[in-house]
Computed example of a mutant assay.
Amino acid sequence: MRVVVAEDTAILRAGLVQLLEEEGHQVVAAVPDAEQLRSAVKEHRPDLVVSDIRMPPTHTDEGLRAAIELRTEQPGLAVLIFSQYVETQYASRLLAGGSAGVGYLLKERVLDAQDFVDALERVAAGGTALDPEVVTQLMGSSPSRTTVAELSPREREVLGLMAEGRSNSAIAIALVVSERAIEKHVANIFTKLDLPVSSGDHRRVLAVLRHLGA
């Protein structure tokens, strides 16, 4: 796939480019700020953008705001936010605009390069990849937090894994329980959040994320 990387730290930017190219992807541009990100996406029309949040000139939320704008202008553009920070306000807007092809990973929690590449490829294919900490903070900032508060600790854990795009069987393996138990937790989550139950993993993730980003 064709990728634009936006990262103001030169060493990390070079590392991302090297990793992606070693995996057979084409990095059509690697830029240090949000303004150059906008220009690069308009020029190259990539399949995916990998962007930090805090970049020059203010080092606040330029990258995330640019991602929202670019998704609005190019609805099919996949975006993976890769940052040290969780910005709930703009992250909710990014997800509310349609969570297909959206990822949000925290740098310090990505411990394996292959996991990062897998998440990136899942997002590029129209899937979702969210760090559980991002999901937790979005849940806490959601206007529907009273409803979310009704989830049990285990249901919150399952919801976090659902938001990573994992299937029931994968969640069962991760939590060392039966798949039947996970199916029950998933049904309870949708009931408590007043969301329609769907047998499709991707559709259920989209429903949860739209709820959290509403």
Rank of each mutant, 00 (worst) to 15 (best):
R93T: 11
V102Y: 08
P75D: 08
S83G: 12
R93A: 13
Q74P: 00
T88C: 03
R71F: 00
S99L: 02
Q89M: 09
R65G: 00
S99H: 04
L77N: 11
Y85G: 05
E87A: 14
F82K: 01
E69F: 02
R71D: 08
E69V: 01
A100K: 11
V86R: 05
R65L: 06
Y85H: 15
E69A: 00
L64A: 01
Y85E: 15
E62W: 12
Y90V: 08
A100P: 09
F82G: 03
I68T: 14
S83V: 06
Q89L: 05
A91Y: 12
F82H: 07
E87M: 07
E73G: 00
S92R: 15
A66S: 02
E73T: 08
F82R: 01
L64F: 09
G63R: 05
G98K: 04
E62H: 10
Y90M: 07
Q89T: 11
E62T: 12
S92E: 11
V86I: 15
S99F: 10
L95R: 04
E73K: 02
Q89C: 00
G97A: 08
L80R: 01
G76H: 08
L77S: 10
V102W: 09
G76R: 09
T72E: 12
A78Y: 06
A78I: 06
A100Q: 14
L80A: 04
L70R: 03
G97R: 04
A67E: 13
L64Y: 07
I81A: 13
S83P: 10
V79R: 03
V79E: 04
V102P: 06
T88M: 01
R71H: 05
Y90A: 07
S83A: 02
S99R: 02
Y85T: 14
A100V: 01
E87C: 11
V79D: 01
G97W: 00
E73M: 03
E69Y: 03
E62N: 08
I81K: 10
G98Q: 05
E62D: 04
